[in-house]
Computed example of a mutant assay.
Amino acid sequence: MEPTYTIVIADDHPLFRNALFQSVHMAFSGANLLEADSLESLLNLLEKSEEPDLILLDLKMPGANGMSGLIHLRADHPEIPIVVISASEEPSIVSQVKTHGAFGFIPKSSDMRALIGALSQVLEGEPYFPVELLSQSSESHDLAERIAALTPQQYKVLGMLSDGLLNKQIAYDLNVSEATIKAHMTAIFRKLGVKNRTQAVILLNDANE
């Protein structure tokens, strides 16, 4: 008897989400499939449901930009395997996904056979990362590791910096003191090896390209 899996598909594009749903349903007929179209709806779903066996996560959907959704999920639900399914197939992105604790990466351009093979491997407990997408320069790997060294809160602050918000605005939005934000800034600059917010934002943009 085949094991019954609970798999969450998190993607904001209805057509792709439906296609992925159908593909997974055909390959794992007994699977319990759940859907989310934003980071908020995904987090709500995880609060109300039993822990799933796997989350299939798109990097870009409402509430998540770049690695922020993955980082948030790894912090809140470290025990749940997460496989990123993305149209961004650059080696630097795949390296960051792996460094941030994802259990696998599947390009959206994958055909049905490759998709099912990757999911089968992951559900059997083996990580899946396309070898050809992991061959990259040591420079981009170093950048991925520096970004991964940030805590979820520090990554959130850095993202808000990138959006052009001032310390006072960030403190208000996160409901903390301005002194706390300054302490975060100091830690962010140290971990990234930069001297100011401009350099930090450039590094973040480089990482998300």
Rank of each mutant, 00 (worst) to 15 (best):
G164E: 02
L150C: 06
V122L: 09
L119M: 09
H141Y: 04
E145A: 13
V94W: 02
S88H: 14
L119F: 01
E145G: 00
S135L: 10
I116E: 08
A87S: 12
D142N: 12
S162A: 15
A87G: 12
L165H: 07
M112N: 06
L115R: 13
E90Q: 09
G164W: 14
P91V: 08
E89Q: 12
A149P: 00
V97K: 05
S120D: 07
S120K: 12
L123M: 08
H100A: 15
D142F: 11
S110T: 14
E124A: 15
S110P: 00
I85E: 07
Q96L: 15
H100S: 11
S120T: 15
Q153A: 06
E89P: 02
S135F: 08
F103S: 13
E126Q: 14
S95P: 00
S162M: 06
L123F: 08
R146I: 07
Q96G: 14
A149L: 03
A114M: 12
A102Q: 04
K156Y: 07
Y155I: 02
L115W: 05
R113L: 10
L166Q: 15
V84Q: 04
E90L: 10
S110G: 00
A148E: 03
V157F: 02
S140W: 01
L123W: 08
G164F: 12
P127I: 05
E126R: 15
A102M: 07
K156R: 11
S138Q: 12
Q121H: 06
A149G: 02
P127Y: 04
F103R: 13
H100M: 15
V94R: 01
L161D: 03
S95Q: 04
P107K: 12
S138W: 07
M160P: 00
A148K: 03
Y128N: 12
E139G: 02
L115D: 10
Y128D: 11
P152V: 01
L133E: 07
